[in-house]
């Protein structure tokens, strides 16, 4: 899973597979971080809270 597990090989298959995996995880993690920061800013009044319409 990481270059620290011994199966790891620096070849194109590993780069593609884990590249895509880490991009997906990065998007999920990035999204959550974005929401956390935005919420914190709104809670502490640094950012205006928008009315939620749906």
């Amino acid at each position: 899973m990481t270059p620290f597990s011994f199966e790891w090989q620096w070849n194109i298959e590993y780069v593609i597979f884990f590249g895509l995996l880490y991009i997906a995880l990065g998007l999920i993690g990035g999204g959550i971080t974005f929401v956390a920061i935005k919420t914190a800013l709104q809670v502490f009044g640094f950012m205006r809270e928008r009315d939620f319409h749906d």
């Binding site: 974005f34 929401v35 956390a36 919420t39 709104q42 809670v43 928008r50």
Partner: peptide, 12 residues
């Protein structure tokens, strides 16, 4: 706080 989390999650 929780409502804001929900709304912000929904937005993205």
């Amino acid at each position: 706080e929780l409502r804001l989390v929900g709304h912000n999650l929904h937005e993205i």
